[in-house]
Design a protein around this nucleic acid. Structure first.
Length: 462
RNA sequence: GCUCCGGUAGUGUAGUCCGGCCAAUCAUGUCGGCCUUUCGAGCCGAUGACUCGGGUUCGAAUCCCGGCCGGAGCACCA
């Protein structure tokens, strides 16, 4: 089997691309064969030069591997060659009809005057095409003027574009349309199965005519439905505008649905993969919720993420009447299921930061500081007892805390780009960037940067 | 409007091709319980669906017709 992932380089990959990429990859690994990465940049106006770099990066992050790689703008001569061949076969013709006039004819199943031009006239126009003005002429593939779907009738194969191409400059003015270059490439590259969105249903139909004209085998077309994410509805172009206007910090802004934004937040590639394999290739649309992704991701992270205390809405608390004997160092496992990962140590001297909400929601009640002591919340915070049993008796809430005497500053970037700040326990200094941890009772987060001993996390989910 | 396609629990999915083993799978969510220490993790359990109406058949989620709802395309974008 030969499959290809063929994105348009208009920006980095987003969650929708992930489906095509991962499913293609899955077919290859499951049935054997190869995967081709083909960058489809035959519209000079829809090319973001950075995308040539970002697309492979995003694929690598997702764990998608490809064997061959092509860029269509390197293959312009090939498209020109096949376009000419098609004319010589009498299967395509040069058409100078204004667009609206052709549409009128096409919609009533009538052929335009150029359809029966002689080969010589066609070739002459084809030779002149590079010197003609944009919009004045196109090469059309003959299909069936009686096809019940007007969209299929005599579609455009080559057209003139005046803009410079970001990669190949002004070397060419005559560019292939996607349906033409895709068909030529899929055939030349030996693609056996074409996996594409159902928005290409009509294109598959159009392309079949070209396969038949040239006597080529038609690959298996597989169409999948639309994938909607609740919340993020941002298209690549909307995201780009937002970045340019300074609304978003970049392609990896936590509010965006790009692969890099999702990864930055600590969503694991395996979670994305599981999601895509579950959704599969069915043609019915599906709406995926973040909760679903979080659930899958949590299953992976739960085993991986060590635990730390961070207080994000800190209020300094001094415990009155704390017996001297209870002061000391609290040891706590990094992960309850994997004790051999070791312990972290928190000095405890009666001065701690607690989450303001924990204090406000427990006024008049007993609160247990994990692995430390029980305290009574009132106007004054006082020592209550020390054992867990006592805490249970009081139905005390068990909360996390950070020592005042020893801690690091921490910031947590939330999904809505809200930046929370507070304190994290001192043993967090053993963490390095990219580590994903569970901030107990807060949620999972990925360490994004460390600056001047201040840690910045990107929040994944609870 | 025209062409094409789809509709299984809150969401996603299995089953639909080749009707019976489907009072319908799994996941996620939600709810409840458990846990010498995360109310939020984990573990256990529970709730929850075949779009509707006809037809064919001994028997239909599965086949046929119609309705309803939803989607895609109708570019000199990909």
């Amino acid at each position: 089997m030969v499959l290809r992932f063929a994105p348009n380089p208009s920006g980095p990959l987003h969650i929708g691309h992930a489906r095509a990429a991962i499913l293609n990859q899955e077919y290859v690994t499951r049935y054997g064969g190869k995967l081709i990465l083909r960058v489809e940049d035959t519209d000079p106006r829809r090319v973001d030069p950075d995308a040539y770099q970002m697309i492979p990066e995003d694929l690598e992050w997702m764990g998608v591997k490809w064997q061959d790689q092509y860029i269509q703008s390197d293959r312009m001569e090939i498209y020109h060659q096949y376009a000419r061949e098609l004319i010589e076969l009498g299967k395509a013709y040069m058409c100078t009809c204004p667009g609206d006039e052709f549409k009128k004819l096409k919609d009533s199943s009538q052929e335009c005057p150029h359809r029966e031009m002689s080969l010589a006239e066609n070739l002459k126009l084809w030779e002149e095409m590079p010197g003609m003005s944009e919009g004045s002429v196109v090469l059309r593939v003959k299909t069936d003027l009686d096809h019940k779907n007007p969209a299929i009738r005599d579609w455009v194969a080559m057209r003139i574009v005046d803009d410079e191409h970001p990669r190949i400059g002004d070397k060419f003015r005559v560019y292939p349309m996607m349906n033409f270059s895709v068909t030529v490439d899929d055939h030349l590259m030996g693609v056996t199965h074409v996996l594409r969105g159902k928005d290409h249903l009509a294109n598959s139909e159009k392309q079949k005519y070209l396969y038949h004209h040239l006597g080529w085998d038609v690959p298996e077309f597989i169409h999948y439905g639309r994938l909607k994410m609740d919340d993020i509805a941002l298209s690549t172009s909307q995201a780009r505008n937002g970045i340019e206007e300074g609304m978003y910090t970049g392609w990896d802004d936590p509010r965006l649905g790009t692969i890099r934004a999702i990864g930055r937040r600590g969503i694991m590639p395996e979670a994305i993969k599981e999601l895509m394999l579950e959704i599969g290739v069915k043609i019915a649309d599906s709406t995926v919720s973040w909760k679903k992704i979080y659930g899958l991701n949590r299953n992976i992270l739960e085993k991986v993420a060590n635990r730390y205390f961070a207080v994000l809405n800190p209020q300094k608390v001094t415990i009155n009447g704390l017996p001297e004997s209870l002061k000391g160092t609290i040891k706590r496992v990094k992960h309850p299921d994997f004790p051999d990962r070791g312990y972290r140590e928190l000095p405890f001297d009666g001065e701690v930061y607690l989450d303001q909400d924990d204090i406000e929601n427990n006024n008049g009640r007993v609160l247990r500081l994990m692995d430390a002591v029980n305290i009574k919340i009132a106007d004054e915070i006082t020592y209550h007892s020390s054992s867990l049993e006592d805490a249970r008796k009081e139905k005390a809430r068990i909360v996390h805390w950070v020592p005042v005497s020893s801690n690091k500053r921490v910031k947590v970037m939330m999904q809505d780009a809200n930046l929370l700040s507070g304190f994290i326990e001192p043993s967090s200094d053993e963490l390095s960037v990219d580590d994903i941890v569970q901030l107990e009772r807060v949620g999972f987060a990925r360490l994004d940067s460390v600056q001047n001993s201040e840690l910045t996390f990107y929040f994944a989910h609870k």
